[in-house]
């Protein structure tokens, strides 16, 4: 059974890699298969872990009819496919957006206030000074109500350098991530072939 699983996994891995040479039916087969398997695996799991315990169990076994309200709003999502009643799907969307809104104050704390506080600490080390300089100069760059000329232009130019270094770091990390994914698959192939030979 394990061997059959390994053969299928090796075939699908090679089928996906075959795209590097050119598009072909084996690649497309593997691509469609992954979409089908993901949906096929997900649907019964969602049914078992969401629909059964939070709809069937609650309403029909525990008789907690309050759960009919979220079920009703959930059903409204399906009207998105109707031309005449599509507007009904906006209500559950509005409720979802309201929930997102509830997190705005907390987001303000984590993403803005704490960050601002940490940007206003004493310049005790060279690293903190670099962070301070970067924060100020990048903010200069994004201030467009003044022409970027003279001393002001020079400061905003430093901001551009900071951003370029940031983008470079992100790109370097991206290359590393992509190579890691390739390593994962090649590690699997190498180990499997080693196992077969042994």
């Amino acid at each position: 059974m394990t061997l059959i699983g390994e053969i299928i996994a090796v075939f699908l891995t090679l089928a996906i890699f075959s795209f590097l040479y050119k598009d072909n039916p084996a690649y497309r087969f593997a691509e469609y298969l992954i979409v089908g398997v993901t949906v096929g695996y997900g649907l019964p799991l969602v049914y078992k872990n969401a629909f059964q315990p939070f709809v069937l169990q609650r309403i029909f076994v525990e008789h907690k009819f309050i759960f009919l309200i979220p079920v009703f709003f959930g059903i409204l999502f399906w009207f998105r496919f109707s031309r005449n009643y599509g507007w009904l799907s906006r209500y559950p969307i509005a409720i979802s957006m309201g929930m997102v809104g509830a997190g705005v104050t907390m987001s303000m704390n984590s993403m803005v206030l704490v960050q601002v506080r940490q940007a206003m600490i004493p310049l005790e080390t060279f690293n903190i000074f670099l962070i301070f300089l970067g924060t100020i100069t990048v903010m200069f760059y994004f201030f467009f109500s003044k022409a970027h000329t003279g001393l002001y232009g020079k400061f905003s130019r430093i901001g551009i350098w900071y951003m370029m270094i940031g983008f470079g770091a992100s790109f370097g990390y991206t290359v590393m991530a992509r190579i890691s994914l390739l390593i994962g698959r090649l590690q699997f192939l190498a180990d499997t072939f080693k196992g077969w030979i042994a």
Partner: peptide, 12 residues
């Protein structure tokens, strides 16, 4: 995190 996302996490 995956390496792609690492740079975004440093401020936190």
């Amino acid at each position: 995190l995956t390496a792609v996302m690492a740079a975004d996490q440093y401020p936190y």
